[in-house]
């Protein structure tokens, strides 16, 4: 005991395990939470399909598990998503992700980089139009929206390190979506 004195009333968590019923409650809690923590990580298999009903409520409630980082290999591409906005007078402006700095700003910019990493994928095509529309509002000159926004992905393949060093690769570019202003 390192508290005030030995008669100090214990906290609710500690008091719970003073009775048999409390111990049983704690045992159930620990078992359920342990299954919720470990279960979702089990690799896909027919067995998993049969038992995942046990932890699916946890996932539905927002208690998720997915810890595959840089796996099975790190991504072999460096990438960038830019947008080219064209105004009615024919001038263009290029939109890029906000530059937020490397110290404190790094705790904001990781979100924008995640968006960039995902928006480029064809599987996320449903997000393209709304993202381009947001960019159009972001680059608007006062009330004047651009007439079009082209979303462009740029990428550079990253070759594995060898005993001879690294090989530079060229930057590729592909326009993957065009948004057009709807006047009404």
């Amino acid at each position: 005991m390192s508290g005030l004195d030995a008669t100090e009333r214990p906290d609710a968590h500690t008091a719970l395990v003073r009775t048999r019923v409390g111990k049983a409650v704690v045992a159930v809690l620990v078992i359920v939470m342990s299954v919720w923590i470990v279960g979702p990580n089990i690799p896909a298999s027919p067995v998993r399909d049969r038992v995942e009903v046990v932890w699916s409520p946890a996932i539905k409630a927002g208690f998720k598990q997915n810890w595959s980082v840089f796996s099975p290999n790190p991504r072999a591409q460096a990438l960038e998503v830019v947008a080219v906005a064209e105004f009615a007078d024919g001038t263009t402006t290029e939109w890029t992700l906000p530059e937020l700095g490397q110290t404190i700003g790094a705790y904001r910019s990781y979100r924008w980089r995640k968006w960039q990493e995902r928006i480029r994928l064809d599987s996320n095509a449903r997000y393209w139009d709304s993202s381009a529309a947001w960019i159009a509002r972001d680059v608007a000159r006062g009330d004047e929206l651009p007439v079009s926004v082209r979303l462009i992905r740029r990428w550079r393949d990253i070759k594995p390190l060898t005993a001879n060093g690294i090989v530079d690769t060229k930057v590729n570019e592909f326009e993957f979506h065009v948004w057009g202003r709807v006047d009404g």
Partner: peptide
């Protein structure tokens, strides 16, 4: 080495 060269992260 690959991770260090993914410029966007």
């Amino acid at each position: 080495s690959t991770v260090f060269r993914i410029d966007d992260i």
